[in-house]
Amino acid sequence: MSANPLTKAEFELAGNAVSIRHFTRRFGETTVLRNLNLDIAPGEFVALLGHSGSGKSTLLRALAGLDTVEEGQIDRPSAVSVVFQEHRLLPWKNVTDNVTLGLDGKEWNAQAEAILHEVGLGHRLEAWPLTLSGGEAQRAALARALIREPKLLMLDEPFAALDALTRLRMQKLVLDLWKRHDCAVLLVTHDVDEALALADRALVLERGEIRTEVEIPLTRPRRHADPVFEALRERLLHALGVTS
């Protein structure tokens, strides 16, 4: 360790997978994110909740490096992967080639095969994306994200377009993959139950600021009937402006 001195980013990150300091993002007159601070520990699973237009996507885009950071500072690992709500597979490449997109060399094919088996798509290695079901396509997208061994995996409402049963199966898959690959996860969702079932910590973003932050100290798999679960659920729903 002492042989290679830390770069600036690594120094800032020391101890954290992600560190956001005083990050502000404006689009013209509107301020979408205001003076945002957020740390994510290595291997931590964080859920980000919020209404549409609360700034979730803007934050995700900035973390994915798709947006410039003008005010404030974002330190993130170089190995970041994103899974979007739509699978975004290239229809003209088969599943394996989609997973290895941008990775040169034949040796990646074996790795792709292994990871596709891991996400339960071992039987569709050569399939065209147009022939996949919604759940299968999202599994392929997960494989494409994981083959790069990311230090931070971002999931942008990845299961919103899936049916309820498939969504439950995919949530379980994400938990398994997270445990095995040991990466920090930032899950953007507006499903409170999904956040509570998966995350270590849930954040509620409202009008560009993190208004509520909730630790979820439950062991997994979690039961919805658990009184602690129920109480956290009430709290998050309340923070989102839903009162029962």
Partner: peptide, 16 residues
């Protein structure tokens, strides 16, 4: 454009 955006998150060069 979403596919281009995805390619950028994967770090693809302009040529790729």
């Amino acid at each position: 454009p979403k596919l281009i955006e995805l390619a950028k998150t994967l770090g693809l060069s302009r040529w790729k």
